[in-house]
């Protein structure tokens, strides 16, 4: 018994030392985090960087970030930790990232939905609360109908909607998301009115349209790509600036007279907290640019049916603000 006891005591003492050592080391780390942010921007990064993902592990944003993290680790020469902070329509992750020092060690992933949820007032943040660094990939949006639909062209669709206002059911994903803005712009400029029925995601909307529970679908290109190829769905128009090389016969919305839909894309990007030193933002931009040019990343984009879309600096800020302003204006009009 005595022997057993002494062994226990020794193990405990050992553990206690280890625990104390661990906890004190994390403490010093934290201290250095806070002070390290202001000075020494030249040796950035000198410790691991955290990528915050506002979606659950395994979602498209998460998969991209893990791919980017893998490639960026080599460029940064530091370990990258991917943290999932899902929930609150992205507000949890945003809040979390903003609570960290503006030192470039916390980088937030989000998509074009971010300015829109901000604009709709769904989350208590505004465009000025976040600084976009760079977009990585994008996807065009489409309006599509089932193969047995009477609408062959976009004009057929508009004509029917004009004669039967509010009768057409258009399924889509999310209220106040990118596809919602896209649908609202179609309604506004074509001067028609249809039922916008929001589902929890593009694939749920796709199920409904395939099952005949809707007249048309607005979604990102990747969602419907398979069904378009197999002939189950027919594209009426695409949101990109140019016609798609894969579907040269489908007109763009700009050609169809919906001029406000010009390169209306869904994109995924990275953000930092405003006030992050200029040199650090530049360094991150440079790393992300290099990542976007690697063959591995191009392979990833191809496999997930997305296009490389690298935009930074003022150009990106303008894109971001446009989304925000468009959102504000259009959502205001339907809220009345």
């Amino acid at each position: 018994m005595g022997k057993k006891c002494s062994i226990l005591v020794i193990t405990f003492l050992l553990l206690a030392t280890v625990l104390v050592a661990c906890s004190s080391s994390t403490k010093t780390n934290e201290n250095s985090n806070q002070s390290g942010g202001e000075k020494n921007t030249s040796d950035y990064p000198n410790r691991p960087i955290t990528f915050v993902v506002p979606f659950s592990a395994g979602g498209s944003g998460d998969i991209m970030t893990r791919e980017v993290a893998k490639l960026a680790e080599k460029e940064f020469g530091q370990t990258i930790i991917v943290e999932n902070k899902e929930g609150g329509s992205g507000a949890i992750a945003l809040n979390y990232a903003l609570s960290k020092p503006a030192d470039g060690y916390t980088i937030l992933n989000h998509s074009s939905t971010l300015p829109l949820t901000m604009a709709s007032g769904e989350i208590p943040f505004e465009a000025k609360d976040i600084q976009p660094v760079a977009t990585m990939v994008s996807n065009y949006q489409v309006l599509a109908v089932p193969k047995d639909s009477p609408f062959i062209t976009f004009q057929d669709f508009v004509e029917y909607a004009k004669n039967n206002p509010g009768k057409l059911n258009v399924v889509s994903s999310q209220t106040y998301g990118t596809t919602h803005i896209f649908s609202l712009k179609i309604m506004e400029e074509a001067d028609i009115n249809f039922n916008y029925i929001a589902y929890d995601g593009g694939s749920e909307a796709l199920t409904r349209i395939l099952g005949g529970n809707g007249d048309a679908i607005t979604s990102s290109g990747e969602v419907v790509q398979q069904q378009v190829e197999s002939g189950d769905l027919r594209l009426l128009g695409v949101s990109s600036a140019e016609r798609l090389p894969t579907h040269p016969d489908v007109p763009t919305f700009k050609e169809l007279g919906i001029t406000s839909i010009d390169d209306e894309l869904i994109w995924r990007a990275y953000f930092v907290r405003p006030g992050t030193p200029e040199e650090i933002v530049e360094k991150i931009t440079e790393v992300l640019r290099k990542v976007s040019e690697t063959p591995e990343f191009k392979e990833y984009a191809k496999n997930t049916n997305q296009d490389i879309y690298f935009k930074t600096g003022e150009e990106l800020t303008e894109v971001f603000n446009n989304y925000y302003e468009d959102g504000k204006e259009l959502f205001e009009s339907i809220k009345k």
Binding site: C5, L8, V9, F12, L15
Partner: peptide, 13 residues
């Protein structure tokens, strides 16, 4: 005290 310490240790590990 000893048994409690022992179990806590194992569980936390």
């Amino acid at each position: 005290i000893l048994t409690s310490l022992g179990i806590s240790l194992v569980v936390i590990l």
